[in-house]
Amino acid sequence: MIETLQTLEWHPFLLSFKLAVITTFILFSICLPFAWYLSQTKSKLKPILEAITALPIVLPPSVMGFYILWSLSQNSVIGQFFNDVFGIKLVFNFTSLVIGSCFYSLPFMVQPLQNGFQSINKNMLEASYVAGKSKYVTMLRVALPNIKPAIMTAIIITFAHTIGEFGVILMIGGSIPGETKVASVAIYEFVEVMDYAQAHIYSGIMLVMSFLTLLGVYVFNRSQNNKFMRVQP
């Protein structure tokens, strides 16, 4: 057992971690204004945008993986363009994992943020407008500080969900050690070759990490809900 731990390959975990950090960062930057827009708009397009955003929750990862592969491979217009102009390949490398994860985890970032923004007292936002503040300033200084639990939930769930990604990654990234072989893919391969000892260790680590992440979210949200009730020192 100790021997197995000493020879444990940490690369897949680091790769999963790196992928999750980058994906979360990109998604947060894009989804913050998007979620704010969704929460405030009265446009008829809203249900359509919401449905598209939620698609990754219901679609089988293989379907998403297939479409991403189809649209980004070197035979596709987009893939060809990036290859010719920037010399970047968009499939079977780390870049492709980031692109795939951004689609895959999109709803997990958008939905908590949108719910958070929607739960804000409308009068509070209007009080800010009447005070002469633009929508942008209102979002930054009134809306955001009052939805901290939602922001925290969005970031952590997106992060954890990306760590737990498997199907899409396998389809568009394959299993190149150090490049696209993330922890979940590594476990799949261990099981495939019947190396149950390694599979156990990897799975155990994933289980504990995921539990601790979620525990962190709930503990944080609990403390946040009480925070504004306290008197400032």
């Binding site: 007292n121 009068n123 509070m124 209007e126 009080a127 800010s128 009447v130 002469g132 009134v142 500080p145 009052n146 504004f228």
Partner: peptide
């Protein structure tokens, strides 16, 4: 440039 007072105060809790 108006002042508006809401029934539910609408203060900024943060």
């Amino acid at each position: 440039k108006i002042g508006f007072v809401f029934q539910d105060y609408a203060l900024f809790p943060n």
